[in-house]
Design a protein around this nucleic acid. Sequence first.
DNA 1: CTAAAAATGGACTAGCAAGTCCAGTAATGG
DNA 2: CCATTACTGGACTTGCTAGTCCATTTTTAG
Lengths: 204, 204
Amino acid sequence: MALTVKGEATRRRIVEGAAAEIRERGVGATTLDDVRARTRTSKSQLFHYFPDGKEELLLAVARFEADLVLADQRPQLGDLTSWRAWREWRDTVVARYRGQGQQCPLNVLISQLGRSTPGARAVVRQLLDQWQCEIATGIRDMQRQGEVAAELDADQAAAALLAGIQGGVVIMLSTGATTHLEAALDLGVQALRATGSAERRPRR
Amino acid sequence: MALTVKGEATRRRIVEGAAAEIRERGVGATTLDDVRARTRTSKSQLFHYFPDGKEELLLAVARFEADLVLADQRPQLGDLTSWRAWREWRDTVVARYRGQGQQCPLNVLISQLGRSTPGARAVVRQLLDQWQCEIATGIRDMQRQGEVAAELDADQAAAALLAGIQGGVVIMLSTGATTHLEAALDLGVQALRATGSAERRPRR
DNA sequence: CTAAAAATGGACTAGCAAGTCCAGTAATGG
DNA sequence: CCATTACTGGACTTGCTAGTCCATTTTTAG
C-alpha cells in the first residue's frame, strides 16, 4: 500500500488535525467524527490510512507530539555549553509552557496517550530518554569546563531536572501558573552552579 | 435527603469501589456498570446517592483519593524537624510509589480526574497547596535550627521539591522505575542541606 | 490510452454506556 | 402501629461511537 503524494498529505492532515483536537478537548472527548469533521475527511479515509482504527491513529499522534516536544526546545537543548545557554533554555521552556496553557502536547502524550497502549508508552519512554540524555550531555560539558563539580552524577542530576520539569508542567495544568516549573528549573540549575563554585572546599 | 446508617455505608462502598476500579482500569475505561457490579449495587442506587450521575461520583472519588495521598505520607510529612525525619519521609514516599506501581491515587487524581471538571480541579489545587505548605513548614523549621540558610525562599524550594515529586511519579508510570522520583527527592533535600553547611561563605 | 491501484464519500450496523422510571422493600419517628 | 421517608432492583430508553461496506472518483504506471 504505497502512498501517493496526495495520500501522504491527507494522512498528515489527519494526524495533525487529530493532535489539535486532542489538545483542545482531551483524548477521552475526541471522537473519530470530530477528527473527520476537522480534517474534512470521511470515515473510510480514516480507516484507509489507519487500518487498525483509533488505536493506530492515536499512536501516530503520540509520535507526532513527541517530536514536537523536543523540537520546541531547539536549538537550546542540545547545546547547553554555557550558563547563558542554560538560561536561554530555561526561558524557552517556561515561555513555551506558559504560552500554550492548557493545550499541552507533552501532557497529552504522557498523561493521556501514554496510558492507553504499550506502543504509546514506548514512545513516551523514548522521548524521556532522549530528553534526559541531552540534558546530561549538557551537564557533562559544563563539568569538562570545570563549571560543575566533576564528582556529580550527571545522569542523576539530569533525571532530577527532568522530573522537576514534568512535575512543573503537570502542576501548571491544574493551577494555571508556571510557578512550580520555574522553581524546579531555577533551583535545579542553581544547584548545578553551586557545585562548581564550591570546588575549593571539597567535602572529602 | 438525610442518610441513614445503612445509606452512609452504601455510599461509602460505592465511592471506594469506584476509586479502586478507576485505579485499576483508568477513569476512561470505568463505566457505571463496572462500579455497580463491583459494589453490588443497582443503577438506581448510584443515582440515588449521586443524583448528578457520573460527574458527581467522580468528584467524590477525587476527594477520597486526595485525602489518601496525604494520609499516605503521615506521620512524616508534617513533622519534618530533623534531617532524619526528612530521610524517613523520602523513604516513605519512595516506598509508597514503588509499591503501588501503576495503581496510583495521585496520578488518577491529577492526570485523570483533575482534567474533567472545575470541581475536581479545585480538589487537586487544594491538595497541592496543602502538600507544598507542609513541606515549606518543614523547611522553615530547619531554617530556625540553622540547618538551612535563612536567605533561602522556603516556598520556592518547597515548590521545586513538590514539582520533582509529581514529575517523578508521572515518569514512574511510564517507565516503571522510581529512579527519577528518587533523584528528585535526593538532590532536592541535598540542595537544602548544602545551603546550611555553606553558611560560612555567604555570597553577598 | 487504459487497466490496476489508490483515494474518497457516506450510509449502515452493532454494541455499549449514561441516565430514566417505576415498582417494591426496609427503616424511622411520632 | 402506620405513614412517611429512605433504600433497592432491574428493565428500558436514548444517544453516541467505532468500525464495516460498497460504490465512485482520481491517480499511477506501463
